[in-house]
Nucleic acid binder design. Sequence first.
DNA 1: GGCGTACTACGAAGACTATCGTACTGGCAT
DNA 2: ATGCCAGTACGATAGTCTTCGTAGTACGCC
Lengths: 113, 113
Amino acid sequence: MTTAESSRTLAHPERDRIRLEEVLHALADPMRLRVVCALDAGDTEQSCTELQLPVTKSTSTHHFRVLRESGVIRQTYRGTAKLNALRREDLDLLFPGLLDSVLAGAARQGDGG
Amino acid sequence: MTTAESSRTLAHPERDRIRLEEVLHALADPMRLRVVCALDAGDTEQSCTELQLPVTKSTSTHHFRVLRESGVIRQTYRGTAKLNALRREDLDLLFPGLLDSVLAGAARQGDGG
DNA sequence: GGCGTACTACGAAGACTATCGTACTGGCAT
DNA sequence: ATGCCAGTACGATAGTCTTCGTAGTACGCC
C-alpha cells in the first residue's frame, strides 16, 4: 500500500535565505559530506537509516538537521521514515558549479562512502 | 631598493595533501571568505594589514594561518611584511570550479568586503 | 645601536560542535 | 491495543573555534 506523506512538516530555509557560509560549513564535516555524496549517488530519496552512518541515531539526526537548516537537503516525512533529497536545483541556481565541484572533489578523495 | 625575500619559511601543505573538508572549513568563515575575495579581486599579492580586516592583529594572524594550512593561500615573507596569494592553480587542479563558484556566490551575497 | 613596523606566540575566555545515552513521540503492522 | 521501528528531544561531555590582550621576534631604516 502506498504510504501517504505525513502531516508533520519541517522547517526549510527559502532559497533566497540560503547562505554560502552555512552551506560550506555544512559540507565541511566528513560525516555530512558523506551523506551528500550518498544522496547524489542514489537515484531515489533515501531515509536516514538507509544511509548507514557510523554514528548513533541521535548524532545522525543532528547532522541531517544541519544539512536541512543550511539548505543543502530537503526532508519529508513518509510514515515513520524521513526521506532526504539534495536541493540540487536551488543550490545550482544560487551557487552554480559548487555542488558539482564538491562532489567531484569528494569522489576524488575517496569520501564517497 | 628591492626588498629581498626573507630566509624565513612557512609550512604549506603539498598539493596532494590538500583536503576538501579543510578547504571548505577554511572558506566557511565570513572573515576568511572576505580575505579570499579580496585576494581574488586584487591584481597583486597583498599583505595582511593591507586587507583591513575588522579584527585585531592576532585574530588576523589566526585566520591567515588557517587559510595557509588548509592550502587555500600561499604566504611568503618579504621584509617585515607577509604577502598572501591564492593558490588558484593548485585548487583549480584539485577541485575544478570550486573556487570560482565560491567567489561568485560570495560576490552575489555581497561578501566581497 | 636604536626605533618603528609587521607579524607571531602564548594564554585565556566564551561560544560553538560532534558525539553519546536515555527517554520520548509518531506511525505502521499484527 | 500492543508492540515495533524510525526518528526526536534533552542533557552531558569533551573537543574545537573565534576572539582578544600582552609580550615577543624579525626586519628595515635612521
